[in-house]
């Protein structure tokens, strides 16, 4: 009887992340005044929505056994594109659609190179990163504001839900949660999603089983390109500006979030839901440091490093421990 109730092993790394997150949150709540409030909790989603959306794309690519380093640069590029297009007088809605299309195309272009010529994804997406970053500087060297824009102002003023106490649930966190949900449904319950797992575990055997590897790969990077572009748009809505220097190194945060969430970098193992807790965990580490408010610049870096390490350690230990029990 008891045996049947036992937690399935494949959920363990994910459960470990959730447990560690809750404990850290509880510690913050006990130690700091005003920490255990709705505002802080909603902020966690609001401030990290763009990272979360990027992490969904990165997660899908990593599940397929690849990696995408172009995320941060694509975010900067779409932001600049939307800012420039609206500055040229093009309708904001259209500008957003164009930016999304460019993002998807960019992803597909990268994956076509990877899939049809057998190139290492690390290198191709690194090239993509340089290209998108250079591209955003070519659009404009300086940051561009998108002020007094009717569409963005409408999003900000009307598409929000008051939760009381001056706390609002805004459009961008809802978009993130929808994207996450779609990603989870896609990877877990659709045949296309299962193919991504299949090529992530073993490309050769997937090919032998009749999975169209190249097409699946192109799809995975296409989705990632879409997610990066969407993250770029969310970031633009969040900032009301485009800046070619935005989000340098964001790809590392996205990868870290995905891995902390229990997805293996080698591909094929883990759940997208984990990326939510990976993102929240990284956000929580920052909030803890900000609430502490007495840590100088270099200790901030060291402590972020130590906390990331601790999270990984905890997860590893819990996973190993339950391995032994089973």
């Amino acid at each position: 009887m008891l045996k049947r109730l036992r937690f399935p092993i494949r959920y363990v790394p994910f459960a470990a992340t959730v447990a560690v997150f809750i404990v850290a949150y509880a510690i913050g709540a006990i130690s700091f005044k005003n920490f255990f409030t709705l505002r802080v909790f909603v902020n966690l989603f609001h401030d990290n929505a763009y990272l979360g959306i990027a992490a969904v794309g990165t997660g899908i690519v990593i599940l397929s056994g690849g990696i995408d380093l172009s995320v941060g640069a694509v975010i900067a590029f779409t932001g600049m594109l939307v800012a420039k297009l609206t500055a040229c007088g093009i309708n904001t809605g259209l500008a957003i659609l164009i930016a999304l299309a460019v993002g998807i195309l960019f992803g597909i272009l990268q994956s076509t190179l990877i899939a049809s010529f057998d190139l290492p994804p690390f290198l191709v997406t690194l090239g993509g990163m340089f290209l998108a970053r250079g591209g955003s500087f070519i659009i404009n060297e300086e940051a561009l504001s998108i002020l007094k824009n009717p569409v963005l102002d409408f999003i900000e003023d009307n598409l929000q839900l008051s939760l009381g106490n001056g706390v609002y649930l805004e459009c961008i966190e809802v978009v993130y949660l929808i994207v996450l949900l779609c990603g989870i449904v896609f990877t877990q319950w659709t045949p296309l999603g299962r193919r991504i797992y299949a090529i992530g575990v073993n490309e050769q055997s997937a090919l032998l089983m009749g999975v169209p590897v190249a097409r699946t790969k192109i799809m995975a990077y296409g989705i990632a390109g879409f997610c990066s572009a969407l993250a770029g748009i969310v970031f633009t809505v969040y900032l009301k500006s485009g800046n070619p220097l935005n989000c340098i190194g964001l790809e590392m945060d996205a990868i870290a979030a995905v891995v902390i969430g229990g997805i293996l970098l080698t591909g094929g193992v883990g759940y997208l839901l984990g990326s939510l807790f990976g993102v929240l965990t990284l956000g929580l580490i920052q909030v803890l440091i900000m609430f502490q408010g007495n840590i100088n610049s270099w200790w901030t870096r060291i402590i972020i490093g130590i906390l990331v390490l601790l999270f990984i350690f905890m997860q590893n230990l819990i996973t190993k421990l339950s391995d032994k029990k089973q």
């Binding site: 850290a24 510690i27 130690s31 502490q292 007495n294 130590i306 905890m314």
Partner: peptide
């Protein structure tokens, strides 16, 4: 995990 976190907040 708790130990270093507590250290973090103790000075506060």
């Amino acid at each position: 995990l708790i130990l270093p976190l507590l250290l973090l907040v103790s000075c506060k």
